[in-house]
Design a binder for these strands. Sequence first.
DNA 1: CGCATCCGTTAGTCGTAGCTTGCGTTAGTT
DNA 2: AACTAACGCAAGCTACGACTAACGGATGCG
Lengths: 109, 109
Amino acid sequence: MTNASALLDALAEPTRRVIVERLSTGPAAVTELARDLPISRSAVSQHLQVLKAAGLVSDRAEGTKRVYRVNPEALAIIRAYFDSFWQRSLAAFEQAATGHTATASEEPA
Amino acid sequence: MTNASALLDALAEPTRRVIVERLSTGPAAVTELARDLPISRSAVSQHLQVLKAAGLVSDRAEGTKRVYRVNPEALAIIRAYFDSFWQRSLAAFEQAATGHTATASEEPA
DNA sequence: CGCATCCGTTAGTCGTAGCTTGCGTTAGTT
DNA sequence: AACTAACGCAAGCTACGACTAACGGATGCG
Protein backbone atom coordinates (compact mmCIF):
# COMPACT_ATOMS: atom_id res chain seq x y z
CA MET A 1 0.00 0.00 0.00
CA THR A 2 2.98 2.26 0.41
CA ASN A 3 3.73 1.75 -3.24
CA ALA A 4 3.04 4.67 -5.49
CA SER A 5 2.80 2.48 -8.58
CA ALA A 6 -0.24 0.65 -7.29
CA LEU A 7 -1.90 3.96 -6.53
CA LEU A 8 -1.12 5.32 -9.97
CA ASP A 9 -2.42 2.18 -11.60
CA ALA A 10 -5.74 2.91 -9.95
CA LEU A 11 -5.61 6.53 -11.04
CA ALA A 12 -4.83 5.56 -14.61
CA GLU A 13 -8.50 5.59 -15.50
CA PRO A 14 -9.80 9.11 -16.27
CA THR A 15 -13.16 8.32 -14.73
CA ARG A 16 -11.50 7.23 -11.51
CA ARG A 17 -9.61 10.49 -11.38
CA VAL A 18 -12.88 12.37 -11.68
CA ILE A 19 -14.30 10.27 -8.88
CA VAL A 20 -11.34 10.94 -6.62
CA GLU A 21 -11.44 14.62 -7.49
CA ARG A 22 -15.07 14.67 -6.53
CA LEU A 23 -14.39 12.82 -3.30
CA SER A 24 -11.55 15.14 -2.43
CA THR A 25 -14.12 17.87 -1.86
CA GLY A 26 -16.07 15.67 0.54
CA PRO A 27 -17.53 12.20 1.07
CA ALA A 28 -20.26 10.91 -1.21
CA ALA A 29 -22.37 7.82 -1.84
CA VAL A 30 -22.38 5.66 -4.96
CA THR A 31 -25.64 6.84 -6.47
CA GLU A 32 -24.68 10.39 -5.70
CA LEU A 33 -21.44 9.96 -7.61
CA ALA A 34 -23.10 8.18 -10.50
CA ARG A 35 -25.54 11.03 -10.90
CA ASP A 36 -22.82 13.31 -12.24
CA LEU A 37 -21.19 10.67 -14.41
CA PRO A 38 -22.16 9.38 -17.85
CA ILE A 39 -21.87 5.77 -16.75
CA SER A 40 -24.07 3.41 -14.81
CA ARG A 41 -24.10 3.09 -11.04
CA SER A 42 -22.63 -0.37 -11.34
CA ALA A 43 -19.64 0.95 -13.25
CA VAL A 44 -19.08 3.56 -10.58
CA SER A 45 -19.27 0.88 -7.94
CA GLN A 46 -16.65 -1.16 -9.76
CA HIS A 47 -14.39 1.85 -10.01
CA LEU A 48 -14.77 2.40 -6.31
CA GLN A 49 -13.74 -1.18 -5.65
CA VAL A 50 -10.55 -0.62 -7.58
CA LEU A 51 -9.85 2.60 -5.73
CA LYS A 52 -10.59 0.91 -2.44
CA ALA A 53 -8.32 -2.04 -3.22
CA ALA A 54 -5.55 0.41 -4.01
CA GLY A 55 -6.11 2.16 -0.69
CA LEU A 56 -7.08 5.45 -2.26
CA VAL A 57 -10.55 5.54 -0.76
CA SER A 58 -12.37 3.99 2.16
CA ASP A 59 -16.04 3.32 2.61
CA ARG A 60 -18.44 3.42 5.52
CA ALA A 61 -21.93 1.97 5.72
CA GLU A 62 -24.47 4.65 6.57
CA GLY A 63 -27.93 3.20 6.64
CA THR A 64 -28.66 1.77 3.25
CA LYS A 65 -26.11 4.06 1.70
CA ARG A 66 -22.40 3.54 1.49
CA VAL A 67 -20.32 6.65 1.87
CA TYR A 68 -16.89 6.86 0.29
CA ARG A 69 -14.11 9.23 1.14
CA VAL A 70 -10.55 9.72 -0.03
CA ASN A 71 -7.55 8.60 1.96
CA PRO A 72 -5.27 11.63 2.38
CA GLU A 73 -2.29 9.40 3.13
CA ALA A 74 -2.54 7.78 -0.28
CA LEU A 75 -2.48 11.17 -1.96
CA ALA A 76 0.46 12.10 0.20
CA ILE A 77 2.37 9.09 -1.11
CA ILE A 78 1.69 10.03 -4.70
CA ARG A 79 2.60 13.59 -3.92
CA ALA A 80 5.92 12.52 -2.44
CA TYR A 81 6.51 10.22 -5.37
CA PHE A 82 6.23 12.96 -7.96
CA ASP A 83 8.11 15.34 -5.71
CA SER A 84 11.26 13.24 -5.62
CA PHE A 85 10.65 12.47 -9.23
CA TRP A 86 10.60 16.09 -10.12
CA GLN A 87 13.69 16.88 -8.08
CA ARG A 88 15.63 14.11 -9.77
CA SER A 89 14.70 15.38 -13.19
CA LEU A 90 15.69 18.88 -12.15
CA ALA A 91 19.08 17.64 -11.03
CA ALA A 92 19.58 15.85 -14.32
CA PHE A 93 18.48 18.93 -16.16
CA GLU A 94 20.90 21.14 -14.27
CA GLN A 95 23.68 18.69 -14.87
CA ALA A 96 23.01 18.68 -18.58
CA ALA A 97 22.99 22.47 -18.61
CA THR A 98 26.17 23.04 -16.64
CA GLY A 99 27.98 20.09 -18.11
CA HIS A 100 29.30 18.65 -14.88
CA THR A 101 27.88 16.83 -11.91
CA ALA A 102 25.93 18.80 -9.38
CA THR A 103 27.50 18.89 -5.93
CA ALA A 104 24.29 18.97 -3.93
CA SER A 105 24.73 22.64 -3.10
CA GLU A 106 21.01 23.14 -2.89
CA GLU A 107 19.38 24.89 0.02
CA PRO A 108 17.22 22.52 2.03
CA ALA A 109 15.03 25.46 3.07
CA MET B 1 -0.29 21.10 -22.38
CA THR B 2 -0.81 22.74 -19.03
CA ASN B 3 -3.41 20.11 -18.31
CA ALA B 4 -2.49 17.54 -15.71
CA SER B 5 -5.01 15.02 -17.03
CA ALA B 6 -3.21 14.69 -20.34
CA LEU B 7 0.05 14.13 -18.51
CA LEU B 8 -1.48 11.52 -16.26
CA ASP B 9 -3.01 9.74 -19.21
CA ALA B 10 0.49 9.33 -20.57
CA LEU B 11 1.80 8.14 -17.22
CA ALA B 12 -1.01 5.65 -16.84
CA GLU B 13 1.09 2.97 -18.49
CA PRO B 14 3.46 1.24 -16.06
CA THR B 15 6.12 0.85 -18.74
CA ARG B 16 5.97 4.54 -19.49
CA ARG B 17 6.47 5.33 -15.84
CA VAL B 18 9.57 3.16 -15.83
CA ILE B 19 10.81 4.98 -18.89
CA VAL B 20 10.25 8.38 -17.34
CA GLU B 21 11.85 7.23 -14.10
CA ARG B 22 14.84 6.13 -16.07
CA LEU B 23 14.96 9.40 -17.97
CA SER B 24 14.67 11.39 -14.78
CA THR B 25 18.18 10.25 -13.91
CA GLY B 26 19.53 11.47 -17.22
CA PRO B 27 18.95 11.52 -20.98
CA ALA B 28 19.01 8.29 -22.96
CA ALA B 29 18.50 6.97 -26.48
CA VAL B 30 15.82 4.56 -27.63
CA THR B 31 17.94 1.43 -27.96
CA GLU B 32 19.57 2.23 -24.65
CA LEU B 33 16.19 2.36 -22.98
CA ALA B 34 14.95 -0.79 -24.69
CA ARG B 35 17.97 -2.70 -23.42
CA ASP B 36 16.62 -2.66 -19.88
CA LEU B 37 13.02 -3.36 -20.83
CA PRO B 38 11.29 -6.64 -21.72
CA ILE B 39 9.76 -5.16 -24.85
CA SER B 40 11.04 -4.41 -28.32
CA ARG B 41 12.74 -1.21 -29.36
CA SER B 42 9.77 -0.32 -31.51
CA ALA B 43 7.46 -0.55 -28.54
CA VAL B 44 9.71 1.75 -26.57
CA SER B 45 9.71 4.16 -29.46
CA GLN B 46 5.94 4.17 -29.50
CA HIS B 47 5.82 4.85 -25.79
CA LEU B 48 8.19 7.73 -26.28
CA GLN B 49 5.90 9.17 -28.92
CA VAL B 50 3.05 9.16 -26.43
CA LEU B 51 5.20 10.77 -23.78
CA LYS B 52 6.41 13.32 -26.28
CA ALA B 53 2.89 14.15 -27.44
CA ALA B 54 1.91 14.70 -23.82
CA GLY B 55 4.85 17.04 -23.34
CA LEU B 56 6.51 14.88 -20.73
CA VAL B 57 9.68 14.31 -22.72
CA SER B 58 11.54 15.99 -25.54
CA ASP B 59 13.92 14.53 -28.07
CA ARG B 60 17.03 15.68 -29.78
CA ALA B 61 18.76 14.16 -32.77
CA GLU B 62 22.32 13.29 -31.98
CA GLY B 63 23.99 11.66 -34.93
CA THR B 64 22.07 8.56 -35.78
CA LYS B 65 20.77 8.37 -32.27
CA ARG B 66 17.83 10.19 -30.80
CA VAL B 67 18.28 11.28 -27.24
CA TYR B 68 15.25 11.73 -25.02
CA ARG B 69 15.01 13.66 -21.79
CA VAL B 70 12.26 14.51 -19.37
CA ASN B 71 10.59 17.88 -19.22
CA PRO B 72 10.83 19.12 -15.62
CA GLU B 73 7.96 21.55 -16.16
CA ALA B 74 5.59 18.71 -16.94
CA LEU B 75 6.50 16.97 -13.72
CA ALA B 76 6.05 20.25 -11.91
CA ILE B 77 2.50 20.47 -13.22
CA ILE B 78 1.68 16.98 -12.01
CA ARG B 79 3.31 17.75 -8.73
CA ALA B 80 1.21 20.87 -8.29
CA TYR B 81 -1.87 18.93 -9.32
CA PHE B 82 -1.51 16.32 -6.62
CA ASP B 83 -0.45 18.95 -4.16
CA SER B 84 -3.69 20.93 -4.40
CA PHE B 85 -5.47 17.64 -4.62
CA TRP B 86 -3.98 16.47 -1.39
CA GLN B 87 -4.67 19.73 0.37
CA ARG B 88 -8.31 19.63 -0.65
CA SER B 89 -8.70 16.13 0.69
CA LEU B 90 -7.03 17.16 3.91
CA ALA B 91 -9.41 20.05 4.30
CA ALA B 92 -12.37 17.75 3.74
CA PHE B 93 -10.92 15.31 6.18
CA GLU B 94 -10.42 17.96 8.83
CA GLN B 95 -13.90 19.28 8.30
CA ALA B 96 -15.36 15.83 8.75
CA ALA B 97 -13.36 15.37 11.91
CA THR B 98 -14.29 18.69 13.50
CA GLY B 99 -17.82 18.77 12.16
CA HIS B 100 -18.76 15.54 13.83
CA THR B 101 -17.09 13.87 16.76
CA ALA B 102 -13.36 13.79 17.23
CA THR B 103 -13.33 10.13 18.22
CA ALA B 104 -15.70 8.85 15.61
CA SER B 105 -15.90 5.80 13.39
CA GLU B 106 -12.72 4.71 11.76
CA GLU B 107 -12.61 1.20 10.39
CA PRO B 108 -15.34 0.02 8.00
CA ALA B 109 -14.02 -3.54 8.13
C1' DC C 1 -44.99 -7.35 6.48
C1' DG C 2 -44.83 -5.78 1.26
C1' DC C 3 -42.33 -2.27 -1.17
C1' DA C 4 -38.82 0.87 -2.47
C1' DT C 5 -34.07 2.33 -2.20
C1' DC C 6 -29.24 1.54 -2.24
C1' DC C 7 -25.63 -1.30 -3.25
C1' DG C 8 -22.18 -5.34 -4.59
C1' DT C 9 -21.50 -9.16 -7.74
C1' DT C 10 -21.44 -11.87 -11.77
C1' DA C 11 -21.54 -12.97 -16.65
C1' DG C 12 -20.77 -11.36 -21.06
C1' DT C 13 -19.88 -8.01 -24.79
C1' DC C 14 -16.87 -4.78 -27.05
C1' DG C 15 -13.58 -1.21 -27.93
C1' DT C 16 -8.86 -0.14 -27.68
C1' DA C 17 -4.16 0.14 -25.90
C1' DG C 18 0.09 -2.29 -26.25
C1' DC C 19 3.01 -5.37 -28.64
C1' DT C 20 5.45 -7.63 -32.57
C1' DT C 21 6.89 -7.84 -37.27
C1' DG C 22 8.49 -5.98 -41.42
C1' DC C 23 9.92 -2.14 -44.13
C1' DG C 24 11.88 2.41 -45.45
C1' DT C 25 14.91 6.27 -44.05
C1' DT C 26 18.83 8.71 -42.25
C1' DA C 27 23.51 9.10 -40.50
C1' DG C 28 27.99 7.36 -39.65
C1' DT C 29 31.95 4.22 -40.98
C1' DT C 30 35.45 1.88 -44.05
C1' DA D 1 29.50 2.78 -52.73
C1' DA D 2 28.48 -0.76 -49.60
C1' DC D 3 27.51 -1.86 -44.95
C1' DT D 4 25.81 -1.13 -40.39
C1' DA D 5 23.43 0.98 -36.59
C1' DA D 6 19.54 3.56 -34.88
C1' DC D 7 14.89 5.07 -35.67
C1' DG D 8 10.00 5.95 -37.06
C1' DC D 9 5.99 4.15 -39.24
C1' DA D 10 2.16 1.17 -40.50
C1' DA D 11 -0.44 -3.07 -40.37
C1' DG D 12 -2.17 -6.76 -37.75
C1' DC D 13 -2.93 -9.54 -33.78
C1' DT D 14 -4.08 -10.23 -28.89
C1' DA D 15 -5.36 -9.42 -24.30
C1' DC D 16 -7.17 -6.60 -20.95
C1' DG D 17 -10.29 -3.47 -18.90
C1' DA D 18 -14.48 -0.68 -18.92
C1' DC D 19 -19.19 -1.03 -19.45
C1' DT D 20 -24.09 -2.86 -19.36
C1' DA D 21 -27.63 -5.92 -17.80
C1' DA D 22 -29.64 -8.83 -14.55
C1' DC D 23 -29.56 -10.71 -10.12
C1' DG D 24 -29.68 -11.10 -4.87
C1' DG D 25 -28.76 -9.10 -0.29
C1' DA D 26 -29.60 -5.42 3.26
C1' DT D 27 -31.81 -1.47 5.16
C1' DG D 28 -35.67 1.81 5.80
C1' DC D 29 -40.49 3.11 5.51
C1' DG D 30 -45.58 2.79 5.04
